[in-house]
């Protein structure tokens, strides 16, 4: 696969390390009253969709950016690639 890096252009997927669902960015607040349950759900309960999936990739053999890649898990078509840091900031983290 080829991942269109927002800063570096098209790069081979072999340069990246895959992590998983981009929902891992939304780490719960440890002080919430229900934090134990929220952390459990955050860590263990993830979707495994057929089709569009937003997922985290790390450009380990490159500039070390974490990226959020929107990929169709059926066709491997990549619709969007964003810097994870920008998304995290936009989420108010």
């Amino acid at each position: 696969m080829i991942i269109e890096h927002p800063l570096l252009g098209p790069r081979d997927a072999a340069e990246f390390v895959y992590l998983g669902d981009a929902s891992l960015i939304a780490r719960p607040d440890w002080e919430n009253p229900d934090a134990g349950k929220e952390f459990f759900e955050y860590l263990y309960l993830r979707d495994n969709p057929e089709g569009m999936h937003r997922e985290l990739w790390y450009h380990e053999q490159g500039d070390r950016s974490w990226l959020v890649v929107t990929r169709n898990t059926l066709t491997h078509e990549i619709l969007n690639v964003e810097l994870a840091r920008q998304i995290a900031l936009a989420m108010g983290r």
């Binding site: 390390v17 891992l24 960015i25 790390y58 380990e60 974490w66 994870a84 840091r85 900031l89 983290r93």
Partner: peptide, 18 residues
């Protein structure tokens, strides 16, 4: 060494970008 660095970059960019 490699895994911890990867994890710290994740924490830095995705968990606490500010």
């Amino acid at each position: 060494a490699v895994l911890v660095f990867r994890q710290l970059e994740f924490a830095r960019q995705c968990l606490w970008p500010q």
